[in-house]
Design a protein around this nucleic acid. Structure first.
Length: 439
RNA sequence: GCCCUGGUGGUGCAGCCCGGUUAACAUCGUCGGCUGUCGCCCGACGGACGCGGGUUCAAAUCCCGCCCAGGGCGCCA
């Protein structure tokens, strides 16, 4: 059969050739049904004994679920069929027969719901489910919207190396790799290179690329490898400029999903709640007092615990209706922000670093960076780091560096929160966690 | 790294507390029956106690260790 003439199920009409996976076979002896699925939809193939070629009729019971077949026939309207139309086959060709039984069930989770880790073992099968496909279709739109947004705003896309000689942030652990006998690491963030581009005078850059964190987290929101939507921009007057870009990015991306993914959203039973700019902004100090009014007492000058972040999110949601808020002016404390953040001019205990939260989960970290060489070197020492170890980075600041800032947003977290998924692995094509390296 | 919960046919679960029958049910697979199914239906059959050690006449069940999974904490996007 000529696959060049194959058309998507959704568009098929009249005499047509369609191809796809066999979703179901219902054999009633003298009338046999096949449900065929491709990316565009499903279609019932109906074969009545005596009304279709004998060869076609006898082929059907030998098929197996999820085999790949190509069917030629006539699409007819059918009031009896639930889908309203069906395909009367004149020819069926088996392109690839599926083995039985299938190792996972992935089409009707309401009947048998295979556990996530088994589904991930057979990710290629799990992804055949329209719901899985919808998640990644939406993620594609988020990522595409981000690309378009940044380009529209005058940012240029960069591609920085993921092999680095040194860890960027003191906190997270790095994966070590052997680089021809030297120690190298997988990049935890494009942070230093984005800033290098500010020194290079690129002014506005973005990168949507993988970052690596060697942390043994066992939570529904952590991965060892994730996709970071990073940007950095020069000549800002304060961290508000960064937050404004983020707000526009988020609103544009959600708008695109709403506009372009109607059927996917419906399938996943998600209604996009469009946020309005500006998003609520709460300083960390203000957050402490709000939480204290609710009877919890977070330690002063320390980052909030995730339980407190969720509580704060629910308070803000109740008061403003917003799913998003910025937590700003993080503390300049030993275990808080990295050395390269800019501290507040007149209150050096606090910084121009912020996080963006979406439905109670940290989505983005960003801020204004310290661009003054002497101050940066001093902050490096204050954090107990040796400036010589960061020579290559500190050099960026010695020959003219514009004031600048930027942020990093987790694409998978964005997808997960938007779609109310309970585990980030659902929003990750090939999740890497401390245990999983395959597939 | 720590804490909690769990691991039983291909898949999802019951049984475990209180040791002893043919390890139930659903889904799935194979075969048979059925001319409009669409979560088809009906019948037959098939298939399982994470790994290692211990207690016991006897272990899916009790004890110890390990591995894995889910969740929580730390930390983070």
């Amino acid at each position: 059969m000529d696959l060049a003439r194959r058309i998507p199920i959704r568009d098929a009409k009249g005499k047509a050739i369609v191809a796809g996976f066999v979703e179901e076979i219902r054999d009633l002896k003298n009338i046999r049904f096949l449900v065929l699925r491709d990316r565009s939809g499903i279609l019932q193939v109906t074969a009545k004994h005596g009304e279709v070629p004998e060869e076609v009729f006898s082929q059907i019971p030998s098929l197996t679920r999820e085999s790949v077949v190509c069917v030629e026939g006539l699409i007819v309207k059918s009031p009896i069929a639930k889908l309203g139309r069906e395909l009367i086959p004149s020819k069926i060709e088996v392109l690839s027969k599926a083995e039985t039984p299938l190792p996972i069930e992935f089409l009707r989770p309401e009947i048998v719901k295979t556990a996530l880790d088994k589904r991930l073992d057979y990710r290629f099968l799990d992804l055949r489910s329209p719901k899985s496909y919808a998640i990644f279709k939406i993620q594609d739109v988020l990522s595409d919207a981000a690309h378009r947004f940044f380009k529209e705003e005058g940012f240029i896309e960069i591609h920085t190396s993921k092999l680095v000689a040194q860890a960027t942030e003191s906190g997270a652990n790095v994966f070590q790799v052997d680089y021809f006998g030297r120690d190298a690491y997988l990049a935890q963030s494009p942070q230093f290179y984005k800033q290098m581009m500010m020194a290079a005078g690129f002014e506005k850059v973005f990168e949507i690329a993988p970052v690596f964190r060697a942390e043994k987290h066992h939570t529904p929101r952590h991965l060892c490898e994730y996709t970071s939507i990073d940007f950095e921009m020069s000549y800002i007057s304060g961290p508000e400029d960064i937050m404004e870009v983020l707000e526009k990015l988020v609103i544009f991306a959600l708008g695109e999903v709403q506009r372009r993914c109607k059927s996917e959203l419906e399938l996943l039973k998600v209604k996009v709640e469009m946020p309005e700019a500006p998003f609520p902004k709460i300083t960390l100090r203000k957050a402490y007092t709000i939480l204290e009014e609710k009877g919890v007492k977070p330690p002063y000058m320390e980052d909030l615990e995730s339980e407190h972040e969720r509580l704060l999110a629910s308070i803000i949601k109740e008061e403003t209706g917003s799913d998003f808020f910025f937590l700003t002016e993080y503390a300049w404390a030993p275990d808080s922000r990295p050395f390269y953040v800019m501290r507040k001019e007149n209150e050096p205990d606090w910084t121009y670093a912020f996080d963006l939260f979406y439905k109670g989960l940290e989505l983005t970290t960003g801020g204004q960076r310290e661009h003054r060489y002497e101050k940066l070197k001093e902050q490096c020492k204050l954090k107990g780091l040796e400036p010589e170890d960061f020579r290559f980075y500190l050099d960026f600041f010695r020959y003219g560096m514009p004031p600048h800032g930027g942020s990093g947003t987790g694409l998978e977290r964005f997808t997960m929160q938007l779609l109310n998924l309970s585990n980030i692995r659902e929003a990750t094509l090939l999740p890497r966690d401390p245990e999983r390296l395959i597939p």
